[in-house]
């Protein structure tokens, strides 16, 4: 179980993380969505034990992570900027990881390199960016980590690679009960693959929870009423937007879909249909509420 307890981190005067708390059960995929500069990388680094939080702590199965080698053995951070040992090939990195990580599996590394068609004896610095990302993933997975943190990893992969990655991820999750945190902007992918999600904005974790729960916080309906105003029926609920096209009203409400439908049905509408919102739309709505760029 991964737990972040009120983590605060500042760089000089800039507050990168502001009392971020999160609890994750094993074997889940969590999506960390955030605007640019929201603090995603910083948060992941604190969870990995790379950075020390100014206050608060990160825990893996009850053990604090910072300066804890046994915990760090089980955590793997795939950075948004590929960083390898200078001038190393994948073969060199194999030796490097074998030297430091007890769980490193050279055979698995070779297997994955073949699967992702990565040459083992060429300098990684000569690879393209996308290929470097693949190399990162391969090195990460060959360590059999309990916790995998991917920082904008999806975003750098082409669609074919993305599929391969998802397949491998699925396998590993089943076999090893690995927990994954995916941080990034690619919300469509995240919606499909993540069990739970959290929104990070300017260092604060605005909301987090199961995908369903998050998606159900808003709903969008199209309604035509013969008489009466839809708004009146939705008294007490927060109506985010209300567009009219002739007699058709398109309402976005911060409420459960069932509740909204029930209220509107009471007025016997001529037409009523709910439009499911995607994660991307929900995210944008949340951000707009926070006043982040319209």
């Amino acid at each position: 179980m991964i737990k972040a307890e009120s983590i605060t981190k500042c760089f000089g005067r800039k507050v990168a993380l502001d009392r971020v708390s999160l609890t994750l059960d094993d074997g889940h995929i969590f999506g960390l969505v955030g605007t640019n500069g929201a603090g995603k990388s910083t948060f992941l680094r604190v969870l990995t034990g790379i950075l020390k939080a100014d206050s608060g702590n990160a825990f893996l199965n009850g053990q604090g992570v910072y300066e804890n080698p046994s915990a760090k053995q089980q955590i793997c951070y795939v950075s948004d900027e590929p960083a390898f040992v200078t001038g190393a090939t994948l073969s060199d990195m194999d030796h490097f990881q074998a030297a430091y990580y007890a769980a490193h599996d050279s055979a698995r590394l070779r297997e994955l390199c073949e699967f992702f068609s990565l040459p083992m004896n060429e300098r990684i610095s000569s690879f393209s960016k996308g290929t470097q990302k693949r190399a990162q993933i391969v090195l990460a997975l060959s360590r059999h980590p309990r916790l995998l943190l991917c920082d904008e990893t999806f975003d750098g992969l082409d669609p074919v690679m993305r599929e391969s990655f998802k397949r491998v991820l699925g396998e590993v999750m089943l076999d090893e009960q690995m927990t994954t945190i995916l941080a990034g902007h690619s919300l469509q992918e995240m919606e499909n693959i993540c069990d739970s999600v959290g929104f990070l904005h300017e260092g604060k974790l605005l909301t987090s929870g199961d995908m369903d729960h998050i998606l159900s916080r808003f709903c969008k309906v199209q309604v035509v009423l013969e008489n009466g105003e839809p708004n009146a029926l939705l008294n007490g609920l927060t109506v985010i937007s209300d567009r009219r096209q002739g007699r058709l009203s398109i309402l976005t409400v911060r409420a459960d879909e069932a509740e909204v439908q029930e209220r509107l049905k009471a007025a016997s509408p001529q037409y009523l249909e709910a439009i499911p919102l995607s994660l991307e739309e929900v995210f944008i709505l949340e951000m707009e509420e926070q006043g982040y760029a319209k």
Partner: peptide
């Protein structure tokens, strides 16, 4: 910066 962060991610106490 990159190298420092990478070394910091190793399962190694600073003193070690």
């Amino acid at each position: 910066r990159k190298q420092a962060l990478m070394i910091a991610s190793l399962p190694l106490r600073r003193q070690t």
